[in-house]
Simulated scan of single mutants.
Amino acid sequence: MQTTQKYRIVFLVVIFITSLTSFSSLQAQQGKFVVVLDAGHGGKDPGRPTKNGYKEKSIALKVVLEIGKQLEKNPDFKVIYTRKTDVFLELYERSAIANKADADLFVSVHCNAHHTQAYGTETYVLGAKNSDRNMAVAKAENEVIFLEDNYQENYAGFDPSSPESSIAIGIEQEVYVEQSIQLAKKIEDNFSGKLKRRSRGIKQLSLWVLHNTYMPSVLVETGFITNKKEGAYLNSNSGQKKIATQIRNAIEDYKREIDLNVGSLNLGGDTVPNEVTDEKPSIFNDITFKVQIAASKNDLATKSYNFNGLDNLSKEKSGVIYKYFYGSTSNYNKAQKLQLEAKDKGYKSSFVVAYKDGKQIELSEALKSTSD
């Protein structure tokens, strides 16, 4: 009887210790930066066709596994894969995995293809503004749904050939577009700056795999497997490792900026020049110009001590992030000068934004209106 009682006590102690260990392990997971890595295509979906025998699904998987291997060495990260083997995944499953994990980032890796010897990298974020070229890419990537058994049910009548359908899927992730662009820029800058590869830039595209991901998301086209030279690079162990390293570097750099609470966003295309070239006053009575200096998940007090001594600060909430602005003026030349002041204070990626009737509009649209 006493022996039985001892066994019971030992059993309860073991259960207690195990529960503490599990709880400790759970606590260790909390606060980690969760990245979902998605290797494009797989299984019965090989990806883009190529005459040289390279397989997009295989290259994408090898790059993703290398990114994950490197990130997993950093204790601040938790990595989740949509696939780790050559299996077929339906598109909606990929975003569902990311959402279930409550991920901080979703990164999908692919290879490009073209009937010419086109080459270079591209990184896409979700958006409705598709050029003819972008629309063709979107159509090719989205048509994988036809390989799925219940695609009509799963995608609610979505037609990859329809511009209207493509515009519709760009709306849901709008709140995360700026952060997605922030990561996309870092990836492309690393490709061009550190690997000396041709960057074809950051583009917005209506891709279903990015649809319904409730976090910043990008799709990286690592190069053209149809290009003789670039295809060989993508298919090599050395090329795959270099690509993975620079994507990993971009992810870690993105996290550092978020952690600093002042991660600056450079959206491209609408930034103003570093020098003010026209001293003549340029007043737009119905427009308010501000300089966006930072964005953060944290709600910071708009005090000079939080922003390197800058004052005349304001902020607004956009989805899950707060945007921080310096200055407010209807004089565009003055706004340019404010931007230079912000850059001198360390906000190198600051940019001018425009508001009309209390709503943000494209800077290019604002400057088309008549000034006094």
Rank of each mutant, 00 (worst) to 15 (best):
I243L: 15
D311V: 07
F88A: 01
M135N: 13
P46L: 07
K228E: 15
G43C: 06
K129C: 03
K323Y: 11
V79Q: 04
E172M: 10
N312F: 06
I171D: 08
A128W: 09
N285W: 09
S166K: 15
I15S: 11
S282E: 14
S58R: 07
Q30M: 10
S304I: 03
H110F: 08
G68K: 05
S19P: 01
E230R: 04
E365M: 04
D45M: 03
T277G: 05
T226W: 01
L205Y: 00
N52H: 11
E56Y: 02
A103R: 00
A101I: 08
Y324I: 05
Q29K: 13
F351Q: 15
D104A: 09
Q360A: 10
K297A: 12
V125P: 01
N308M: 05
L267V: 10
L313T: 01
I247G: 03
H115E: 14
E230W: 02
Q5G: 03
S350G: 10
V35P: 03
E164T: 15
I243D: 06
K345S: 12
Q246I: 10
I181Q: 00
G42N: 06
Q182S: 15
Y305E: 15
F351Y: 14
I171P: 00
Y233D: 06
Y355K: 09
L91F: 05
E188P: 01
D357Q: 11
K323H: 14
I361L: 08
A250W: 02
Q240Y: 08
K51A: 14
K203N: 06
D299Y: 10
D104P: 05
T288F: 07
Q27D: 06
L207F: 13
K317Y: 02
I169M: 04
S24R: 11
R256L: 12
V220W: 04
N112R: 07
K6E: 12
I283P: 04
K73M: 10
S166C: 12
Q70T: 12
F191A: 04
Q240P: 05
D278V: 13
G31T: 04
K69G: 07
A184W: 01
A28R: 12
